[in-house]
Design a protein around this nucleic acid. Structure first.
Lengths: 269, 269
DNA sequence: CAGTGGTCTAGACCACGCG
DNA sequence: GCGTGGTCTAGACCACTGG
């Protein structure tokens, strides 16, 4: 039903969503506050329940609100906490281990860190075989690490090593976290990584990722693929999938000292 | 209505969505193909129209399909074309101008490039003032560039320069594209950029961005913020907003020659 | 228990665009 | 014209969770 008056070019549910959105971004509604309930919005805007729900569905998909079940629940304004992942610190040659780098980074930002680790041997997907420059259908060691912040899943890192490398460096087959970090381990065995190829993509999660990371509808993922090279060849490819609403990735290029001067909070302490 | 049989733990619309999704990712339905129409799906699954619509809405929000209006329209499987943006090439000191760098990159990947340019003077948002290390509420030159690929908007780049810098390098106030590129211009005036601080975020677009970039529902954005530093201070901050379904960003670190050996450039087809 | 959102139905009118 | 999806209504039953 189009409004009789000439103003309404937007459908009702978009107008309602726009008003609610405005209240959120303007700060009239704060993080943790609840939107009016569905019956209240029906009354307020004189529309049916489905129209109200179309409006709130928009906001959910925009990641502005989420639904909390139960009597004292409702549509609540979402918090935006962001953990910063430093791409240029992780896996860099040096004394720090990569997992410790991630963990200490999380702790430094004031959160509690934990992770689940799993090792499998997989047939390499064609996309990754290309990156590792090995035959498609060849197998690889997959080391998967699910990372939690304050007990909530935050990101997944899948790192693949070509099988021939794992045969030379048998520790890669250890089904446990490698204390000193695989980068350092490889360096000790003569596979120093000297170059990285990083790819960044933003997309919606697959249902599996949504389940694994506990993503609300309307939450994006930031996918970060790093291919690591020695002077001779690619030796690893990591697929990192971050919950978009809880992470950002930073990286520096060039002269780091000036940057540290002006962004002191980012420097390691 | 829950199914009487014990299998149905998922709501109907999710089951329907899952079956359709499977057909898409498995390749049974290809890019450009249409999903069955709503009446067909109602018949096939014996559900109401709204339930069918709940299912397709999921797929739309996942970015797998989009709605095409009109009689010969319907829900069609979306194409995934990705333009690669090379973060380490853009704005690097050297003979190439930055806009030319973007344009030639697009052309090399086999597309047609164009852009709209606009200059304004703005009060710096607090977030950006912090990055430029100037007073909040101070003003800045904003050079906005909307970039089109094959005539469709693909990304927006907003670059801010502190006002005092613009007073020294008046060309920054030119309301036209600067042929040799602002990076090179600044270098010629003694402001060589020697360091960069890059930030990557994945999120849903604001309604304004969705309109500007012509984004379908269920399309994410990849936001990339680069702060450029001379040896003395930050001199620019660029906010790049990419349509998530059409772009990826790549960057290299360390020894680039090995990488080039194993990743002979993504060539146009 | 009572109130929240989640799912589902049945039916209606509309805008769009190809034939 | 006519079939596509877009919007909207009215009403129903359900699952969850705090008081």
């Amino acid at each position: 039903m189009r409004e009789g008056v000439g103003v309404a070019q937007q459908p009702k549910y978009r107008q309602i969503a726009a008003e609610l959105r405005e209240q959120i971004v303007s700060g009239a509604l704060r993080v943790g506050d609840r939107l009016p309930t569905e019956p209240q919005l029906q009354e307020q805007y004189r529309v049916s329940r489905n129209t109200v729900r179309d409006a709130t569905a928009l906001l959910v998909n925009e990641g502005l609100v989420e639904s909390v079940p139960g009597r004292s629940g409702g549509m609540v304004i979402r918090k935006k906490v962001t953990l910063t992942f430093h791409a240029h610190r992780a896996e860099m040659p040096g004394p720090t281990a990569e997992t410790d780098a991630w963990r200490s980074e999380v702790v430094r930002q004031g959160y509690e860190a934990s992770q689940d680790f799993r090792l499998t041997i997989e047939v390499l997907p064609a996309e990754l075989a290309e990156r590792l420059h090995v035959d498609p259908e060849s197998s690889a060691v997959l080391r998967r690490c699910v990372r939690y912040i304050n007990g909530h899943p935050s990101s997944v890192q899948d790192t693949y090593y070509p099988m021939d490398l794992a045969n030379e460096v048998q520790e890669l087959l250890s089904p446990k976290d490698i204390p000193q970090g695989t980068t350092r381990l490889l360096a000790e065995r003569g596979y120093s990584q000297t170059g990285y190829y990083d790819e960044y993509v933003s997309r919606m999660p697959t249902p599996e990722e949504a389940a694994l990371l506990g993503l609300q509808p309307g939450t994006t993922v930031l996918q970060y693929i790093r291919t690591g090279y020695t002077e001779q060849r690619p030796v690893r490819v990591s697929i990192n999938v971050f919950a978009g609403d809880r992470n950002r990735i930073v990286s520096t290029h060039g002269d780091a000292s000036v940057i540290a001067t002006f962004r002191p909070e980012e420097s390691p302490e």
